[in-house]
Amino acid sequence: MQSDDEDTSLHSCFDSLKTAVMGCCYSICHKDTDPQENTVNERTHLLEVTEQQQETPVPAASASTPPRKPDEQSALNRILHETATNVIDVGALGPYALEAGAYSERVRVYSARVAGLGAAGAAAPRLLADLPHAERAALLAKPPLGAGDKDLITNAVKKAAAAISELRVEHHEDLVVPFRVP
């Protein structure tokens, strides 16, 4: 009977343990089995767990378990406490917080970059500028080119082309000149 009672208490204790570690990462190390607790080794915690998170599962466990012998209860509480110590509740750590100094520094750097880009874009030379619509419409509505001007350029180019087509090299003297070579 005594062993059955201990079995049920252990079962309830394991149930509470499962509730405590559900959804969280945990490691299986125990402090009493680790002689080098304060030294940095492969079992050292990477993230510091706050006291509040360590103690959170304890009341739930004690509420769900009926009162037992003091040594048994304290042993169970100790196991729970150690398990909770080894649990890293990632969800409760909160969002990634940027320090105020780093935040203002980044704001300053990004603002400087944006300002530099804006200045470089505005400095681009503009050879052609848009005219207002009214002025553009007035310009386009003008007669394209006078007939006199058109005739002038057409005749001039035709005459020039004809003159160039008649361009010939005039032969005046011998291409090969003897240099009195004996």
Binding site: L145, D149, K150, L152, I153, T154, V157, K158, A160, A161, I164
Partner: peptide
């Protein structure tokens, strides 16, 4: 005024 005539 610019105009082209053949190659000229």
């Amino acid at each position: 005024l610019i105009q082209r005539h053949g190659t000229i």
